[in-house]
Design a protein around this nucleic acid. Structure first.
Lengths: 146, 146
DNA sequence: CAGAATACTTGGTTGAATGAAGAAATAACT
DNA sequence: AGTTATTTCTTCATTCAACCAAGTATTCTG
């Protein structure tokens, strides 16, 4: 019968959505916590680790700010810390002297190659999914908005 | 050829996992931000909203602390705030006078019935998934650990 | 009844994140 | 060329969630 369905998806969908939202929020928190503990084992903080992982190749601060979804002012602080730890250098961008390129040092790259698998393998949910499952997960998440 | 596969899943799985991890971390942040803006529209903070949503029925602080995955000391502060706003009352648990039950007031329940759909409907990814998709998402996330 | 464990509270501290305002360099427009 | 606007990053102050240690009250255990 499907009852009266003036609004689309007005049955168990709401509860399913609430459950999914709860799962995702909880998982997000677990993942953040996981990243934090792993990063701490490597002597850095979670936001610092996020930046190191992001820097697979040199990029300008603005790009890095977008990629890590944090504000430029915060990224300045993170870059300061990583620079102080010898993991990162700031080079002036040759094409625009306002901008600065963030480049991992040799030490930083070495850290990154150890950090990435350490984060991924032990991750709460992602660590035990195979490639196909990860793909299905992402296809649900990254669906087009419209 | 499948190359040498001493460790299980050592091909594209790692990249797929890293991508999935990135998607989930990013989504988690977006969802937290979404909850915060919606909560702010209702005059409360995101953690307060999380507690209100959790309290579908009265429960002890310890239960609420587990359900919201935050420390008891933090939950005390949240309960204080919500109590001050008239959304929540603390009743002594009849079976154990150490414990206290958190109960939404009429005002709190009214807020909750408006808050839940507002949070769910506008949520970044969850809001545009149907029940089946939410179920598939959760089945991937909530798989047994072993 | 004495001691351990549980449930919550209090106070202090840390650190990520934000926002406003400033310095340096470039782009645009006349 | 010269002036103004825009972009890029930095600095500073502030906020707030989260955590930890210690304290109080109640219940459980031997």
């Amino acid at each position: 019968m499907a009852a009266t369905r003036h609004t689309p998806a007005r049955t168990g969908d709401d509860q399913a959505r609430l459950d999914a939202l709860d799962s995702l929020l909880r998982l997000g928190m677990e993942l953040r916590r996981h990243v934090e503990t792993v990063a701490h084992d490597f002597g850095i903080s979670a936001p610092q680790a996020r930046l190191v992982v992001t820097l697979s190749e040199p990029m300008r601060m603005q790009q890095a700010a977008e990629a890590t979804a944090c504000e430029p002012s915060h990224l300045t602080a993170l870059a300061d810390q990583l620079e102080g730890a010898g993991l990162l250098t700031r080079k002036p961008d040759p094409t625009d002297r306002r901008a600065r390129q963030l480049c991992l040092t040799t030490k930083g790259k070495a850290l990154r190659t150890k950090l990435v698998p350490a984060v991924v393998d032990g991750a709460p949910v992602v660590g035990r999914l195979d490639g196909g499952q990860c793909g299905r997960l992402r296809s649900l998440i990254e669906m087009e908005e419209t």
